[in-house]
Design a protein around this nucleic acid. Structure first.
Lengths: 202, 202
DNA sequence: CCTACCGATCGGTAGG
DNA sequence: CCTACCGATCGGTAGG
Protein backbone atom coordinates (compact mmCIF):
# COMPACT_ATOMS: atom_id res chain seq x y z
CA UNK A 1 0.00 0.00 0.00
CA UNK A 2 2.43 2.69 -0.94
CA UNK A 3 -0.33 4.58 -2.70
CA UNK A 4 -0.61 6.28 0.68
CA UNK A 5 2.92 7.58 0.32
CA UNK A 6 2.19 8.74 -3.23
CA UNK A 7 -0.83 10.67 -1.98
CA UNK A 8 1.24 12.27 0.78
CA UNK A 9 4.00 13.19 -1.67
CA UNK A 10 1.64 14.82 -4.17
CA UNK A 11 -0.37 16.52 -1.44
CA UNK A 12 2.82 17.97 0.06
CA UNK A 13 3.94 19.27 -3.31
CA UNK A 14 0.55 20.82 -4.14
CA UNK A 15 -0.16 22.26 -0.68
CA UNK A 16 3.33 23.82 -0.66
CA UNK A 17 2.89 25.31 -4.12
CA UNK A 18 -0.75 26.42 -4.12
CA UNK A 19 -1.78 26.30 -0.49
CA UNK A 20 -4.39 24.12 1.23
CA UNK A 21 -7.40 26.15 0.12
CA UNK A 22 -5.96 26.51 -3.37
CA UNK A 23 -5.67 22.75 -3.82
CA UNK A 24 -8.68 20.47 -4.41
CA UNK A 25 -8.86 16.80 -3.44
CA UNK A 26 -9.56 16.20 -7.13
CA UNK A 27 -6.22 17.73 -8.14
CA UNK A 28 -4.33 15.52 -5.72
CA UNK A 29 -6.19 12.42 -6.92
CA UNK A 30 -5.40 13.35 -10.53
CA UNK A 31 -1.70 13.78 -9.68
CA UNK A 32 -1.64 10.33 -8.09
CA UNK A 33 -3.70 8.78 -10.89
CA UNK A 34 -6.69 7.57 -8.87
CA UNK A 35 -10.30 8.72 -8.38
CA UNK A 36 -11.29 11.15 -5.68
CA UNK A 37 -13.32 8.65 -3.59
CA UNK A 38 -10.32 6.31 -3.65
CA UNK A 39 -8.17 9.00 -2.08
CA UNK A 40 -10.86 9.58 0.55
CA UNK A 41 -10.70 5.89 1.40
CA UNK A 42 -7.08 6.33 2.50
CA UNK A 43 -7.63 9.66 4.23
CA UNK A 44 -11.13 10.20 5.61
CA UNK A 45 -11.12 13.92 4.88
CA UNK A 46 -9.05 16.66 3.26
CA UNK A 47 -8.27 17.93 6.73
CA UNK A 48 -7.00 14.55 7.88
CA UNK A 49 -4.75 14.48 4.81
CA UNK A 50 -3.35 17.87 5.77
CA UNK A 51 -2.66 16.69 9.31
CA UNK A 52 -0.76 13.70 7.96
CA UNK A 53 1.28 15.89 5.63
CA UNK A 54 2.26 18.10 8.56
CA UNK A 55 2.96 15.10 10.77
CA UNK A 56 5.31 13.69 8.13
CA UNK A 57 7.23 16.97 8.07
CA UNK A 58 7.50 17.05 11.85
CA UNK A 59 8.69 13.46 11.67
CA UNK A 60 11.65 14.45 9.53
CA UNK A 61 12.25 17.36 11.85
CA UNK A 62 12.38 15.15 14.93
CA UNK A 63 14.47 12.47 13.26
CA UNK A 64 17.15 14.77 11.88
CA UNK A 65 17.43 17.93 13.92
CA UNK A 66 17.87 16.85 17.57
CA UNK A 67 21.12 15.07 16.80
CA UNK A 68 22.51 17.94 14.80
CA UNK A 69 21.44 20.61 17.22
CA UNK A 70 22.58 18.77 20.32
CA UNK A 71 25.98 17.97 18.87
CA UNK A 72 26.50 21.45 17.51
CA UNK A 73 25.43 23.21 20.67
CA UNK A 74 27.38 21.10 23.17
CA UNK A 75 30.48 21.90 21.14
CA UNK A 76 29.39 25.52 21.20
CA UNK A 77 29.53 25.68 17.44
CA UNK A 78 26.39 27.77 17.18
CA UNK A 79 27.05 28.66 13.59
CA UNK A 80 27.07 24.93 12.78
CA UNK A 81 23.66 24.71 14.43
CA UNK A 82 22.38 27.47 12.20
CA UNK A 83 23.94 25.86 9.15
CA UNK A 84 22.25 22.55 9.95
CA UNK A 85 18.92 24.33 10.36
CA UNK A 86 19.34 26.18 7.09
CA UNK A 87 20.33 23.02 5.25
CA UNK A 88 17.25 21.20 6.57
CA UNK A 89 15.03 23.66 4.72
CA UNK A 90 17.23 24.33 1.69
CA UNK A 91 17.39 20.59 1.05
CA UNK A 92 13.65 20.67 0.31
CA UNK A 93 12.11 24.11 -0.32
CA UNK A 94 8.60 22.59 -0.19
CA UNK A 95 9.22 21.97 3.49
CA UNK A 96 9.88 25.66 4.05
CA UNK A 97 6.89 26.76 1.99
CA UNK A 98 4.58 24.34 3.80
CA UNK A 99 5.86 25.47 7.16
CA UNK A 100 5.39 29.13 6.24
CA UNK A 101 1.89 28.62 4.81
CA UNK A 102 0.79 26.68 7.86
CA UNK A 103 2.03 29.50 10.09
CA UNK A 104 0.00 32.01 8.08
CA UNK A 105 -3.13 29.86 7.67
CA UNK A 106 -3.43 28.19 11.06
CA UNK A 107 -1.50 30.29 13.59
CA UNK A 108 -3.19 28.68 16.59
CA UNK A 109 -2.34 25.09 15.69
CA UNK A 110 1.15 26.21 14.67
CA UNK A 111 1.62 27.79 18.09
CA UNK A 112 0.93 24.43 19.70
CA UNK A 113 3.44 22.69 17.42
CA UNK A 114 6.10 25.32 18.01
CA UNK A 115 5.64 25.07 21.77
CA UNK A 116 6.11 21.31 21.56
CA UNK A 117 8.79 20.83 18.91
CA UNK A 118 10.78 24.06 18.67
CA UNK A 119 10.61 25.94 21.95
CA UNK A 120 12.65 23.38 23.96
CA UNK A 121 15.51 23.69 21.49
CA UNK A 122 15.39 27.45 21.38
CA UNK A 123 15.42 27.55 25.18
CA UNK A 124 18.41 25.21 25.32
CA UNK A 125 20.21 27.26 22.71
CA UNK A 126 19.26 30.44 24.54
CA UNK A 127 20.81 29.24 27.80
CA UNK A 128 24.02 28.23 26.10
CA UNK A 129 24.26 31.53 24.27
CA UNK A 130 23.74 33.31 27.56
CA UNK A 131 26.67 31.44 29.08
CA UNK A 132 28.81 32.06 26.01
CA UNK A 133 27.96 35.72 26.41
CA UNK A 134 29.23 35.73 29.95
CA UNK A 135 32.53 34.34 28.71
CA UNK A 136 32.86 37.00 26.03
CA UNK A 137 32.52 34.59 23.12
CA UNK A 138 29.21 36.01 22.04
CA UNK A 139 28.33 39.69 21.68
CA UNK A 140 26.93 41.29 24.80
CA UNK A 141 23.97 42.91 23.03
CA UNK A 142 22.59 39.66 21.60
CA UNK A 143 19.03 38.76 22.67
CA UNK A 144 19.51 34.97 22.50
CA UNK A 145 15.96 33.74 21.89
CA UNK A 146 15.03 36.68 19.68
CA UNK A 147 18.22 36.03 17.73
CA UNK A 148 17.22 32.39 17.22
CA UNK A 149 13.77 33.47 16.03
CA UNK A 150 15.30 35.88 13.51
CA UNK A 151 17.65 33.26 12.10
CA UNK A 152 14.92 30.63 11.88
CA UNK A 153 12.66 33.14 10.10
CA UNK A 154 15.43 34.07 7.70
CA UNK A 155 16.17 30.41 6.94
CA UNK A 156 12.55 29.31 6.47
CA UNK A 157 11.19 32.33 4.66
CA UNK A 158 14.35 32.92 2.66
CA UNK A 159 14.32 29.38 1.34
CA UNK A 160 10.60 29.54 0.62
CA UNK A 161 10.78 32.64 -1.54
CA UNK A 162 14.35 32.82 -2.88
CA UNK A 163 13.34 31.50 -6.32
CA UNK A 164 11.02 34.49 -6.64
CA UNK A 165 13.29 37.05 -5.02
CA UNK A 166 16.24 36.09 -7.21
CA UNK A 167 14.85 38.50 -9.80
CA UNK A 168 16.25 41.23 -7.53
CA UNK A 169 19.80 39.89 -7.72
CA UNK A 170 21.67 41.24 -10.75
CA UNK A 171 24.47 38.84 -11.70
CA UNK A 172 22.51 35.60 -11.92
CA UNK A 173 25.16 33.09 -13.04
CA UNK A 174 24.45 29.36 -13.24
CA UNK A 175 21.11 27.67 -12.50
CA UNK A 176 20.28 27.14 -8.84
CA UNK A 177 23.36 29.03 -7.71
CA UNK A 178 21.07 31.76 -6.40
CA UNK A 179 20.11 29.37 -3.62
CA UNK A 180 23.77 28.92 -2.73
CA UNK A 181 24.32 32.65 -2.76
CA UNK A 182 21.34 33.03 -0.42
CA UNK A 183 22.62 30.28 1.87
CA UNK A 184 26.12 31.75 2.02
CA UNK A 185 24.95 35.26 2.90
CA UNK A 186 22.44 33.92 5.42
CA UNK A 187 25.18 32.03 7.25
CA UNK A 188 27.46 35.05 7.09
CA UNK A 189 24.81 37.35 8.56
CA UNK A 190 23.91 34.85 11.29
CA UNK A 191 27.54 34.30 12.22
CA UNK A 192 28.87 37.84 12.10
CA UNK A 193 25.99 39.21 14.15
CA UNK A 194 26.57 36.61 16.87
CA UNK A 195 30.26 36.36 17.71
CA UNK A 196 32.34 39.08 19.29
CA UNK A 197 35.17 38.40 16.87
CA UNK A 198 35.73 36.51 13.64
CA UNK A 199 37.12 33.07 14.25
CA UNK A 200 38.64 33.12 10.80
CA UNK A 201 36.32 30.49 9.25
CA UNK A 202 36.39 30.89 5.49
CA UNK B 1 -18.61 56.38 -2.80
CA UNK B 2 -16.28 55.36 -0.05
CA UNK B 3 -17.88 51.94 0.02
CA UNK B 4 -15.07 51.13 -2.41
CA UNK B 5 -12.53 51.94 0.28
CA UNK B 6 -14.46 49.86 2.80
CA UNK B 7 -14.38 46.92 0.41
CA UNK B 8 -10.63 47.34 -0.12
CA UNK B 9 -10.01 47.59 3.62
CA UNK B 10 -11.99 44.46 4.47
CA UNK B 11 -10.55 42.55 1.51
CA UNK B 12 -7.02 43.45 2.58
CA UNK B 13 -7.69 42.31 6.11
CA UNK B 14 -9.29 39.01 5.05
CA UNK B 15 -6.81 38.20 2.26
CA UNK B 16 -3.94 38.85 4.66
CA UNK B 17 -5.48 36.68 7.36
CA UNK B 18 -6.94 33.78 5.40
CA UNK B 19 -5.42 34.08 1.96
CA UNK B 20 -7.08 34.77 -1.39
CA UNK B 21 -8.37 31.23 -1.93
CA UNK B 22 -9.44 31.01 1.69
CA UNK B 23 -11.62 34.10 1.44
CA UNK B 24 -14.96 34.17 -0.40
CA UNK B 25 -16.52 37.22 -2.02
CA UNK B 26 -19.47 36.54 0.27
CA UNK B 27 -17.29 36.93 3.39
CA UNK B 28 -15.98 40.27 2.19
CA UNK B 29 -19.49 41.49 1.35
CA UNK B 30 -20.69 40.42 4.81
CA UNK B 31 -17.81 42.29 6.47
CA UNK B 32 -18.72 45.44 4.56
CA UNK B 33 -22.46 44.95 5.15
CA UNK B 34 -23.63 44.73 1.55
CA UNK B 35 -24.79 41.92 -0.78
CA UNK B 36 -22.39 39.98 -2.93
CA UNK B 37 -23.68 41.32 -6.29
CA UNK B 38 -23.26 44.86 -4.92
CA UNK B 39 -19.60 44.19 -4.27
CA UNK B 40 -19.25 42.80 -7.80
CA UNK B 41 -20.68 46.05 -9.14
CA UNK B 42 -17.66 47.94 -7.71
CA UNK B 43 -15.11 45.30 -8.68
CA UNK B 44 -16.01 43.24 -11.74
CA UNK B 45 -14.39 40.08 -10.39
CA UNK B 46 -12.67 38.67 -7.33
CA UNK B 47 -9.42 38.80 -9.26
CA UNK B 48 -9.86 42.47 -10.07
CA UNK B 49 -10.45 43.12 -6.38
CA UNK B 50 -7.20 41.34 -5.56
CA UNK B 51 -5.32 43.43 -8.11
CA UNK B 52 -6.67 46.62 -6.55
CA UNK B 53 -5.70 45.47 -3.07
CA UNK B 54 -2.14 44.84 -4.27
CA UNK B 55 -2.06 48.12 -6.18
CA UNK B 56 -3.07 49.98 -3.03
CA UNK B 57 -0.19 48.38 -1.12
CA UNK B 58 2.29 49.26 -3.86
CA UNK B 59 0.89 52.79 -3.78
CA UNK B 60 1.86 53.16 -0.12
CA UNK B 61 5.21 51.62 -0.93
CA UNK B 62 5.93 54.14 -3.69
CA UNK B 63 4.66 57.09 -1.71
CA UNK B 64 6.64 56.42 1.45
CA UNK B 65 9.77 54.45 0.73
CA UNK B 66 11.63 56.30 -2.05
CA UNK B 67 12.06 59.38 0.11
CA UNK B 68 13.24 57.41 3.12
CA UNK B 69 15.55 55.17 1.16
CA UNK B 70 17.08 57.94 -0.92
CA UNK B 71 17.72 60.13 2.09
CA UNK B 72 19.14 57.32 4.18
CA UNK B 73 21.37 55.98 1.45
CA UNK B 74 22.86 59.27 0.30
CA UNK B 75 23.87 59.90 3.89
CA UNK B 76 25.29 56.38 3.92
CA UNK B 77 23.17 55.54 6.91
CA UNK B 78 22.37 52.08 5.66
CA UNK B 79 21.06 50.95 8.98
CA UNK B 80 18.54 53.80 8.86
CA UNK B 81 17.43 52.46 5.48
CA UNK B 82 16.86 49.06 7.01
CA UNK B 83 15.05 50.59 9.95
CA UNK B 84 12.73 52.48 7.61
CA UNK B 85 12.02 49.32 5.68
CA UNK B 86 11.31 47.37 8.83
CA UNK B 87 9.05 50.08 10.18
CA UNK B 88 7.06 50.14 6.94
CA UNK B 89 6.00 46.55 7.54
CA UNK B 90 5.82 46.57 11.34
CA UNK B 91 3.47 49.55 11.14
CA UNK B 92 0.90 47.28 9.47
CA UNK B 93 1.51 43.52 9.75
CA UNK B 94 -1.28 42.86 7.22
CA UNK B 95 0.95 44.47 4.63
CA UNK B 96 3.72 41.96 5.37
CA UNK B 97 1.33 39.00 5.38
CA UNK B 98 -0.25 40.07 2.10
CA UNK B 99 3.16 40.56 0.51
CA UNK B 100 4.34 37.15 1.71
CA UNK B 101 1.17 35.34 0.59
CA UNK B 102 1.31 36.94 -2.84
CA UNK B 103 4.92 35.81 -3.20
CA UNK B 104 3.92 32.24 -2.35
CA UNK B 105 0.67 32.18 -4.37
CA UNK B 106 1.64 34.08 -7.52
CA UNK B 107 5.43 33.97 -7.86
CA UNK B 108 5.40 34.99 -11.52
CA UNK B 109 3.36 38.16 -11.07
CA UNK B 110 5.37 38.95 -7.94
CA UNK B 111 8.58 38.67 -9.95
CA UNK B 112 7.30 41.35 -12.31
CA UNK B 113 6.42 43.65 -9.40
CA UNK B 114 9.75 43.10 -7.69
CA UNK B 115 11.62 43.86 -10.92
CA UNK B 116 9.70 47.10 -11.27
CA UNK B 117 9.39 48.39 -7.71
CA UNK B 118 12.17 46.83 -5.66
CA UNK B 119 15.09 45.91 -7.90
CA UNK B 120 16.08 49.52 -8.73
CA UNK B 121 16.42 50.33 -5.03
CA UNK B 122 18.35 47.19 -4.25
CA UNK B 123 20.71 47.93 -7.13
CA UNK B 124 21.26 51.48 -5.93
CA UNK B 125 21.84 50.27 -2.40
CA UNK B 126 24.14 47.56 -3.73
CA UNK B 127 26.35 50.06 -5.55
CA UNK B 128 26.61 52.28 -2.50
CA UNK B 129 27.45 49.35 -0.26
CA UNK B 130 30.13 48.32 -2.73
CA UNK B 131 31.72 51.77 -2.53
CA UNK B 132 31.45 51.79 1.26
CA UNK B 133 33.20 48.44 1.19
CA UNK B 134 36.09 49.89 -0.77
CA UNK B 135 36.49 52.55 1.90
CA UNK B 136 36.52 50.01 4.69
CA UNK B 137 33.24 51.17 6.24
CA UNK B 138 31.44 47.95 5.39
CA UNK B 139 32.73 44.40 5.89
CA UNK B 140 34.69 43.03 2.98
CA UNK B 141 32.80 39.72 2.86
CA UNK B 142 29.34 41.28 2.48
CA UNK B 143 27.43 40.29 -0.69
CA UNK B 144 25.53 43.60 -1.06
CA UNK B 145 22.44 42.51 -2.99
CA UNK B 146 22.18 39.16 -1.25
CA UNK B 147 22.48 41.02 2.04
CA UNK B 148 19.61 43.30 1.07
CA UNK B 149 17.47 40.29 0.15
CA UNK B 150 18.18 38.65 3.51
CA UNK B 151 17.24 41.75 5.47
CA UNK B 152 14.07 42.34 3.44
CA UNK B 153 13.08 38.72 3.97
CA UNK B 154 13.73 38.96 7.68
CA UNK B 155 11.69 42.17 7.95
CA UNK B 156 8.71 40.99 5.90
CA UNK B 157 8.49 37.40 7.10
CA UNK B 158 9.44 38.25 10.66
CA UNK B 159 6.68 40.83 10.93
CA UNK B 160 4.18 38.50 9.26
CA UNK B 161 4.68 35.64 11.69
CA UNK B 162 6.03 37.17 14.91
CA UNK B 163 2.64 36.98 16.65
CA UNK B 164 2.75 33.21 16.15
CA UNK B 165 6.46 32.73 16.80
CA UNK B 166 6.31 34.65 20.07
CA UNK B 167 5.27 31.40 21.73
CA UNK B 168 8.94 30.44 21.40
CA UNK B 169 10.15 33.42 23.39
CA UNK B 170 10.13 32.73 27.14
CA UNK B 171 9.87 35.99 29.06
CA UNK B 172 6.83 37.51 27.36
CA UNK B 173 6.32 40.74 29.30
CA UNK B 174 3.75 43.33 28.24
CA UNK B 175 1.35 43.00 25.30
CA UNK B 176 2.75 43.77 21.88
CA UNK B 177 6.25 44.18 23.23
CA UNK B 178 7.21 40.98 21.43
CA UNK B 179 7.03 42.97 18.22
CA UNK B 180 9.44 45.52 19.64
CA UNK B 181 11.79 42.80 20.77
CA UNK B 182 11.68 41.34 17.27
CA UNK B 183 12.30 44.75 15.69
CA UNK B 184 15.21 45.51 17.99
CA UNK B 185 17.00 42.22 17.36
CA UNK B 186 16.33 42.44 13.62
CA UNK B 187 17.99 45.87 13.47
CA UNK B 188 20.87 44.65 15.61
CA UNK B 189 21.48 41.62 13.36
CA UNK B 190 21.24 43.73 10.19
CA UNK B 191 23.60 46.36 11.55
CA UNK B 192 26.25 44.21 13.19
CA UNK B 193 26.56 41.94 10.16
CA UNK B 194 27.12 44.92 7.87
CA UNK B 195 29.62 47.35 9.41
CA UNK B 196 33.28 46.63 10.06
CA UNK B 197 33.04 48.20 13.48
CA UNK B 198 30.40 49.36 15.90
CA UNK B 199 29.70 53.05 15.56
CA UNK B 200 28.42 53.15 19.08
CA UNK B 201 24.75 53.72 18.27
CA UNK B 202 22.67 52.80 21.30
C1' DC C 1 -27.22 48.71 -4.39
C1' DC C 2 -30.91 44.82 -4.43
C1' DT C 3 -33.52 39.98 -5.52
C1' DA C 4 -33.33 36.02 -8.05
C1' DC C 5 -30.83 32.79 -10.20
C1' DC C 6 -27.00 30.15 -12.92
C1' DG C 7 -23.47 26.43 -14.02
C1' DA C 8 -19.37 24.64 -12.03
C1' DT C 9 -16.88 22.84 -8.53
C1' DC C 10 -16.28 21.81 -3.78
C1' DG C 11 -15.65 17.96 -0.02
C1' DG C 12 -17.75 13.90 1.00
C1' DT C 13 -21.01 9.42 0.97
C1' DA C 14 -23.45 5.05 -0.65
C1' DG C 15 -22.70 0.91 -2.26
C1' DG C 16 -20.30 -2.35 -4.42
C1' DC D 1 -10.15 1.12 -5.68
C1' DC D 2 -14.43 2.21 -8.68
C1' DT D 3 -19.25 4.46 -10.45
C1' DA D 4 -22.84 7.25 -9.23
C1' DC D 5 -24.47 10.79 -6.75
C1' DC D 6 -25.39 14.56 -2.95
C1' DG D 7 -26.03 19.18 -0.72
C1' DA D 8 -23.45 23.29 -0.13
C1' DT D 9 -20.89 26.86 -1.72
C1' DC D 10 -18.25 29.01 -5.21
C1' DG D 11 -17.74 33.26 -8.52
C1' DG D 12 -20.56 35.62 -11.43
C1' DT D 13 -24.92 37.44 -14.33
C1' DA D 14 -29.73 39.31 -15.46
C1' DG D 15 -32.51 42.70 -14.64
C1' DG D 16 -34.22 46.18 -12.23
Amino acid sequence: MDVRKQILTQATRLFAGQGYDGTSVQQIADAVGIRKPSLLYHFKSKDELRENVIAEMLGHWNAVLPGLLLKASTEERFDATMEALTEFFIEDPDRARLFLRETLDRPQSMKAMLAKFVQPWVNLLGEQLERAKGRGLVRADVDPEAYAVEVITMAVAGTAVIDTLEVILPGTPARGSTRKRHARELIRVARSSLYTDNEGEK
